[in-house]
Amino acid sequence: MTATPLETVLFIAFGAVAIAGALSVILARHAVYSALGMLVNFVALAAMYIMLSAEFLGIAQLIVYAGAIVVLFLFALMLIGGRRPAEQGRLTGGLAAAGSALVVVFLAEIAYLVMRLTGTAGAKGTVTPDVIAQLGHIQLLGATLLLEYILPFELASVLLLVGIVGAVMLARARRQSRQE
């Protein structure tokens, strides 16, 4: 995959924004700022998806993640007291240092692996950006999803059912315990 100079600039710019968003999630003192950092991260990733010829997923990313999920987080924050400082302190220095060290090692490992990547890993399929441009991303994705991936698709619906029932059960708990 080779990128044009414009694409390269955009990739780097959006990448920087995504990293900035992620860093502000873990560094912000206040949980609401963390949620906003998460929003920035999600939007930057959505832009990258669109550049990587995954238009449908880019839009879905905006609707599902940047829309629904961030809003749910903000609701929860407001519900349980978004005004007061979210936490008293960070982990003790030792634990945090050990955790960060683990993460740095992990990152170094992955980076090393990627740099050693032969570049032709895996067998190539037939869905080139040209094909996507010709047939349309949604058509291709829809046909694949409903013909080849029908079982995972149905499993995802079961999963959402579990989510709905579980969330309703946990949320309406108060009323149930008062009945006694």
Partner: peptide, 26 residues
């Protein structure tokens, strides 16, 4: 090339998330 850049970017993001899980308490 772009693929390496993207893979490293996502590894960086993944690591930032993992670090956050380890250092935050909220």
């Amino acid at each position: 090339d772009a693929i390496r850049y993207l893979l490293i970017l996502s590894a960086v993001l993944f690591s930032i998330g993992a670090a956050g899980v380890l250092i935050r308490r909220n």
